[in-house]
């Protein structure tokens, strides 16, 4: 699903966010990426969603080498991967339903089809009753569930979560992780970037540990090392 070959991301003059990282993630895996602030976790997400380009190396997603992806191809890539963020990144002037349906609308899907998919996804994240609410009317956990529903509208093979529980309390964090596991159980590959020790240990799944841009550990059923 994901393959990184000797990937380096360098910011001038001599800052290495990632340094010669090589790894691969198989389809259907649930992988946690852990590390302290500045270890390169978020840079990894940015490279995978083509928000930044690697300085060296190759990135292959689902067989597509996106290392030198063209600007006009980026929207196509982003329709194939789902991403959620710590700050939710919801459109504040749109309702829950509109936020979730937005990626489908920009892709030109039919209105009836959009209504069907969004209704199913809002049911999955248990937000059917809040579909006409605006983001400022939701709790943190609800906002993140909207973001997850939105990330799933294209039925992506890969879902990347960048610190999805960073702004949530323990109860809501658990809800979100349960939801990610549920999505993973449907066959979607999940890449969870976090520094939450409790969550990583509870998951007991594959853990990649980054430190100062280096991949220092890759455990099949790992624990939070740092």
């Amino acid at each position: 699903m994901i393959e990184l070959r000797e990937v380096t991301k360098r910011y001038p003059p001599k800052t290495f966010a990632l340094n010669a990282i090589s790894l691969s993630v198989a389809p259907g895996e649930f992988v946690s990426v852990v590390g302290q602030s500045g270890s390169g976790k978020s840079t990894l997400i940015k490279l995978l969603m083509a928000d930044e380009r690697p300085s060296e190396g190759h990135i292959i997603l689902g067989g597509w080498d996106i290392t030198r992806i063209k600007k006009r191809e980026i929207p196509v890539l982003r329709k194939q991967i789902g991403v959620i963020f710590q700050d939710f990144k919801l459109l504040q002037s749109k309702t829950v339903f509109e936020n979730v349906s937005f990626p489908l609308e920009v892709s030109g899907h039919r209105t009836a089809e959009i209504r069907k998919v969004v209704t199913q996804l809002l049911a999955l994240v248990n937000l059917s009753k809040k579909k006409t609410s605006f983001p400022h009317q939701l709790s943190g956990g609800e906002k993140q569930r909207v973001a997850i529903a939105r990330s799933m509208v294209h039925r992506p093979k890969l879902l990347m979560a960048d610190e999805p529980t960073g702004n949530l309390d323990a109860i809501h964090s658990r809800e979100i992780i349960d939801l990610l596991q549920k999505i993973n159980s449907f066959g979607t590959t999940v890449l969870l970037v976090t520094h939450d020790r409790e969550i990583v240990n509870m998951l007991n799944k594959r853990v990649l540990t980054l430190d100062s841009g280096h991949l220092i550990s890759d455990q099949r059923r790992g624990k939070y090392l740092l």
Partner: peptide, 15 residues
């Protein structure tokens, strides 16, 4: 911020 989010979820520049 909204513009960045639209781009993140796959909206083209025209959209």
């Amino acid at each position: 911020e909204e513009i960045n989010i639209m781009r993140l979820v796959g909206a083209t520049n025209t959209f």
